[in-house]
Simulated scan of single mutants.
Amino acid sequence: MNKVLFFVILWAVCLSVPAQAQKFGYVDTEFVFSKMPEYQKALGEIDKFTDKWSKDIQDKYVEIEKLQRAYQAEEILLTEDMKRERQRVMSEKEREAREYNNRVFGYEGLLFQKKKELMKAPMELVNRAIEKVSVQKKLDFMFDKASDFVMLYTNPRHDYTDYVMEELGLDGASKGTPGTNPANKAITNPK
């Protein structure tokens, strides 16, 4: 009898508590960033650093190439000790160039660190805007359409990109998808 009463009470409680669906949405951060002047400025700075470091590396290899041509031109006139010394110098220069290349463009190198530093401010702006929109719209989850997380289908009514753009003070009118979230539009022509 106690088991039956327990299940009846449990069933009544389950029916009396309204089911609460979790609300979610998504944002196309790639589109948002493309419209942000701060992001564009950061990309320009990154390009400047990349160009400078690439030129530095290229200059190192040009110097090595000059040493190799000079060595080849004078090789028959050099003693064995002189040849070994020149080869050692060229090898050392090549090693320095490779190490510099790795230090700049390698895993978590200078370029990675510079990108992280320069992208921090735009990322924080977007994250704050996403958080504010999520709280305002009472969303439980917000996904990034531009991330590695694969979204095979997205219903435009869950697209909150325009709200984030509005929060950032950006114009989202040129986006190739519907301009505003249709879920929040008033129905003007009911059938």
Rank of each mutant, 00 (worst) to 15 (best):
V126N: 09
V104W: 05
A21S: 02
I130L: 12
E63H: 11
D148S: 15
D59Y: 12
K132D: 13
Y163D: 13
K145M: 09
Y61V: 04
P122R: 00
K114G: 07
Q87R: 11
E38D: 06
I76L: 07
D162K: 15
F33L: 09
N189D: 07
K120I: 06
V17P: 07
I64M: 02
K35L: 07
K138R: 13
M123V: 10
L152I: 14
G179F: 12
K138T: 11
V150D: 10
E85H: 04
Y107R: 11
G109A: 00
R84E: 08
D159L: 08
S34T: 03
F149T: 12
L78R: 01
E96H: 03
D159F: 06
V62C: 09
S91N: 14
Y26A: 08
V150G: 13
P37R: 00
A183W: 08
Y26W: 01
G179H: 14
P182R: 01
Q40V: 07
N2M: 14
T154Y: 14
L110T: 09
P178Y: 15
I57K: 01
R84W: 00
E124V: 10
K60S: 10
K66Q: 08
D59K: 06
D148R: 13
K115F: 06
N184R: 15
E124G: 12
Y160L: 10
M1T: 15
R95S: 15
K115M: 06
L170P: 00
M90N: 03
A19P: 00
G106Q: 07
K66T: 06
M82N: 12
D28A: 04
K60L: 08
F143L: 15
Q58M: 11
K185E: 13
D159K: 09
A19Y: 00
E45H: 03
F33C: 05
K185P: 02
V126G: 07
P182Y: 03
L110G: 09
K55L: 05
F143E: 08
A21Q: 00
L152A: 11
E74T: 08
N189K: 04
Y71F: 04
P37M: 02
D162N: 15
Q22T: 01
Y160P: 09
P190V: 00
L170W: 04
E92K: 14
K185D: 14
K120T: 09
Q136S: 15
M82A: 09
F149C: 14
T180P: 02
S91T: 15
D51M: 12
I187P: 13
S174T: 14
L78F: 04
T161M: 05
V8Y: 07
Y26K: 04
Q72H: 04
E45G: 05
I64V: 05
M90T: 02
I76F: 07
E166V: 09
D148H: 07
E30P: 11
D28I: 01
A12C: 05
A129Q: 12
L125K: 13
T50A: 10
L111Y: 03
A42S: 02
G176W: 04
I64K: 01
Q72S: 04
I9F: 08
F31Y: 11
T161Y: 10
S34D: 01
I57H: 01
K145D: 15
K116P: 03
K52W: 05
V104H: 05
K3M: 15
